[in-house]
Design a protein around this nucleic acid. Structure first.
Lengths: 181, 181, 181, 181
DNA sequence: TATGAATGAGTCTTCATTCAT
DNA sequence: GATGAATGAAGACTCATTCAT
């Protein structure tokens, strides 16, 4: 339950609840009532703070993308000073996949962007920033290939409780892709 | 407009309409009305042939997965006798991505499987058959990595009208992954 | 499953199925499909033999009333030569209440007659014939009171798996009512 | 037309409209639309206040049973100090039967309870309270028999605009049953 | 400012009924 | 004559959104 008289806190709580729920039930099944209940705010708040459900979804998606990017950014610093880039990356990625919700949310974001062109910039930006981030240490073609690969890993993570690709195998794949120039 | 008194034709027409629409608007926005209109059948037919919307979605997803697999199977025969496996694969994949609907449908299928566990077997089967298919010619680790990678390519294809990764670059990545033992 | 090419048999089978189902689920929940399945006839038969569902219900109700009356008539002969009329009647009534379906059907019939005046004659006729039947042996006021009482017994039978009024008590009540002149 | 912003009033209005309509058309033909129109509230209100039609029916039935019981209770006080119990009772009962809706509603309640076991307690409670009420003045066997008899009277009242059993005859029957020990 | 009561558009679904075969 | 495929009208129900308070 978020305190009333804390507009920012409420917005945030609503968006976070929406994020959780999108991961659980999918964008298509998100409703105001569901969000309000999860966020512990009155029903009215969800329409008071967001002009429509679509608006709430958009903001949630933007927020989620940003979150994921932040996580990547802060974690990538560790890679910078690592001498086994592939192993460090594999660890980082495996870490992000630990909780299924992350990849599900990302894929929901991708799909939402596909169906609603106005959301595409957000999804693309995620892709580009990821490539840029990696490019700092590795060749651009490798960065591109790895970013693509990571999206594939997300899908696998969504479907399998235990990833079919262990962290070891993941590192091997990355190592292979790192040879790209 | 599908002829009346042609049960099989109608079922098929409805499923195909549903497939198209899922690719266009997403599973979450699929409605009987939308499907009926697209398929050119009366509203009642959609419930006459499928006991519920969920049932229709399930059958559509199974159908789509099977379609994709068939395509892969028939195309993969070409690879068998190729001497540049990576190039052939890249061509095959790029071909499948030509029409955006294919990858979108696949990803919708993945997401649906995430939210509705009873669909997981279908999604997993796709993954496994793909790996098996590739394993005929290449090492299993490479087959796994490539299958994962292809999922990543799908997501990129969904987001970009022009794939950010040309067929050339795709072939290079595959070549790199093919080195895995 | 009733043989095709036996119109009378089918009509009968459909009506009997309808009777059973009305007792089980109520007139309001009767559907063609339900009846067809129970009767073991194709769906089309239910509309082929009866011009509408309402028509089927009407005929079923008439049939049920007639059945009940027949049962009463044939059984009442036994009473004629009995020297303890009340005891014989109590036995007869208790026998009819043994299977809950009988009273439920009767009450559904009464209620249908209430909501659809065209059915009233059937229900009233049942009442009158019952009174006449009893009048043969007992005074008219007693016959009237007992007929009314029997309807009350039906309602009790519907609600209680074990009738709250044993056959003994029932006989006592009847005996009391038989004193009426 | 019931004022908006008066939740209690609305609930009540909806339940009362449902009660009237059940008496008129039967439980099986009750629809949200019918209730909304009769109650003078928008369609949405009927689902806003009651989670389902079944729920509305249940509450209506409980309400009706309670109403009838209340009426009986308050009226029965008059009997307590009467010296001709049978005559007083007959008057009371005849009064309740004056408006056909009362008995119809009661019988619909009985039937609903038959088809939906969760409603049985309500129907049984009515029976038991009635017996208890009468037992205060008369022997239990008589109370039981009279309660049963009253149910029969209800059915007669439903079917005949003019009761076939005048208040006089009714009193006679009750008098006969009162002799039970 | 904030809320939750209220509404009606739109959904899935059922089913009586029709009618081609 | 008989059937079961087909349809659309109508019902229950959900929920985004509005708005009085």
């Amino acid at each position: 339950m978020v305190a009333a008289r804390d507009p920012e806190g409420r917005r945030r709580a609503i968006i976070e609840a929406a994020g959780q729920l999108i991961a659980e039930v999918g964008v298509g099944k998100l409703t105001h009532r569901l969000v309000a209940e999860r966020a512990g705010v009155p029903l009215g708040s969800t329409t008071y703070y967001f002009s429509s459900l679509e608006d709430l979804i958009d903001e949630t998606i933007a927020y989620v993308g940003e979150q994921f990017l932040q996580a990547m950014r802060s974690l990538s610093e560790g890679i910078a000073c690592s001498d086994d880039v592939a192993a460090s990356l594999a660890e980082l990625i495996a870490g992000q996949m630990r909780c299924v919700k992350q990849p599900v949310l990302m894929v929901e974001m991708y799909l939402a962007a596909t169906h609603r062109p106005e959301l595409r910039p957000i999804a693309r930006r995620w892709f580009e920033e990821m490539v840029d981030l990696l490019s700092a240490r590795i060749s651009r073609p490798a960065a591109l290939a790895i970013t693509v690969y990571v999206d594939g890993v997300m899908i696998q993570a969504m479907l399998h409780d235990e990833p079919p690709l262990g962290q070891e195998a993941l590192a091997d794949s990355l190592r292979a892709l790192l040879t790209l120039r």
